[in-house]
Nucleic acid binder design. Structure first.
Lengths: 205, 205, 205, 205
DNA sequence: AATGAATGAGAGTTCATTCAT
DNA sequence: AATGAATGAACTCTCATTCAT
């Protein structure tokens, strides 16, 4: 039952299914995708999917789970704390802004879409991904801020403002804003200045 | 065909349907809502809805159209330009943050959800609402900025950053973040400071 | 809504569906019958059935309802009470024994089968059909028994014994008992004697 | 192939499976029970069941087979013929009425339900169980009747009437009849009187 | 213009059965 | 002999949409 080889096979099959699900969701969206679409894309039968996942929604949860793992992995570099404050902020902004860009934010769109509307997914995402990420970021930021003599800053609100800023810009970009698309590369620097100095105060401190 | 009385009747009936659609969408979400739900709520028959709207998606488009009108109306006050810069920024932030709070962001969630996934809706939203709003905001901001001697600021990026900030914070709030829920009232002041002065520089200029 | 013509149409359509359901159930049994089978037999579409009945089980309930009506109708003759006791008993036995014989007890079998296993159906059958029938029979029997000077008889148990006797014999017949099939015609007289006089006491009183 | 030890293992495994099947059928009914349910209850795998039984229906046939053996065993006492006629009748009634009562007639219900609808099962039940039982009963009864000077009685019809009576009363009880439930204990005596003497003639002969 | 009965394609899901290991 | 993952046909039920009245 806890046979490690069995476990590997199960994990492999689950990943195969989630790979297919991700691909088809990205292509057609969540609702328009049928279980049969996914099964065909994975080269297996409908029923097999249900041997590994309870229902269609569970596939999205499974995709989350894998995102969680990868995000935690990717955030590790910042933990070191061996960078100056500006670099720290800039990196924090830069990474998420570029990460999802590849496939035109396709998976991001589907996940957000379903989350807006499905409480279970939303809760899971918050508890498993967003909340831990924010808490982690608070810790990093707190350490950096102290070093800068910024003890009086409301760290949790600042973190939320920064992450919200990134999230909101991604949404506006997805909406089709041409200006953002054109200036996307400038954003990390622009936003770093804005956050550190406010409007119009370009001078680095 | 252009009989004005006819037109009034048609508009009234459309509004009746959109009112019902909004109410039911808010209550149940877009996909779980059936045409029959809306018809019943409006006190009419299923078929009648199709005399006024091509399909279910068109109802969402119709809701957008009405949002457009109301948003433009609500933004007018800022146009006057008789307020100081800080007040201008603070008001711009404060209004959207509180507007959707009432019904737990229900309509906002549905609209965002469907937009993420439906290109037609997305385009319509961008062209009809977001783009005009941003452009309008740019104009206001440009005027204010000039008065403040901030000619060298990238206005369009700044506007997008501010609106993105608000949008992203609403999303995080919707995700269930407890910190944001608790400190929601502090946000306008906190963000105004952040935008004007950057992290930790509380002094108003 | 209570438009009588509408009501007639609805009733007609319901009957059309129940006719089809009965026919297909009788032919294939309840579980093996699909909604599509019934729809095809009725010459309508699958969905239409669901406009008139909540689900497959509701079709069986509908068949019950019609049985109820017909049973009550058929029992009326005995109410008159103008027959002598022996005739009364004999008729009570004879009728149900011959009624279901036509189609080889097909509908009876399906109904019994599903009732054994479906509590909702069972309750409905008991409350709507069996219990009222037994009560009615008790009344008739009581009147007859009194006239015969049989005041000390346990009427309710006697009624249940008689009806149980008929029911059980039908079941044995359905099981394929050759003897019963051969002597089915003799049963009314044989049973009447048995009930009135007991084993071997053939003399009519 | 006819290795006796092999045979014993096979029989043991079959019984293990039938025990599980009986338990689960009684709990959930025949159709709602899945092969997996039975396998889990037996602590074996799905596939193993198919090594011993052709299909799901064969499990019911297997349960029949075991019932046959036990019934024949239980009926033996009456064969002795050392009891008086009244006791003989009373015992014949009493036994089946009380036997299935324990688990609310659960297995009885499932078996009857499926038999009504499945010809194979019905035939098997009749040939393997009902017919032999009736024949056996005829023999006993014939012997007893002769001793009572009841040579002119139609033994086969009488036997079928008595067994039908019992069967029908069990069915009515299952349907939920409150009167029968309340007076179930009185039935053996009441029915014995009825059979021996007819309605209202309580005097024991 | 309004109705609402009819449609029927299509979805998710189940589960008896098979068979390679 | 035992396994249990894989299968895929089949089912019930939903619902956006149409159209005759």
């Amino acid at each position: 039952m806890t046979d490690p080889i069995q476990q590997q096979l199960i994990t492999a099959r689950k990943n195969q299914i989630l790979d297919a699900a991700t691909a088809v969701f990205v292509e057609k969206g969540f609702h328009p995708t049928t279980i049969r679409d996914i099964a065909k894309h994975a080269g297996i039968s409908d029923g097999t999917i249900y041997n590994y996942f309870d229902n269609k929604t569970a596939l999205l949860l499974g995709i989350f789970d894998r995102m969680k793992a990868s995000i935690i992995q990717e955030d590790r570099p910042l933990a070191a704390g061996e960078v100056d404050f500006r670099t720290f902020i800039r990196t924090s902004l830069s990474h998420p802004l570029t990460a999802q860009q590849r496939d035109n934010f396709a998976l991001f769109r589907i996940v957000v879409s379903e989350m807006m509307v499905n409480e279970e997914l939303r809760t899971l995402y918050y508890e498993q991904i967003l909340e831990p990420t924010l808490t982690l970021a608070e810790t990093y930021f707190q350490a950096q801020a102290t070093r800068q003599g910024l003890e009086h800053v409301d760290v949790s609100l600042t973190i939320r403002a920064i992450s919200g800023l990134v999230l909101g810009l991604m949404m506006e970009r997805i909406m089709g804003d041409a200006t953002l698309a054109a200036k996307w590369e400038e954003l990390p620097d622009f936003l770093t200045d804005l956050i550190l100095n406010g409007i119009g105060n370009t001078s680095t401190r």
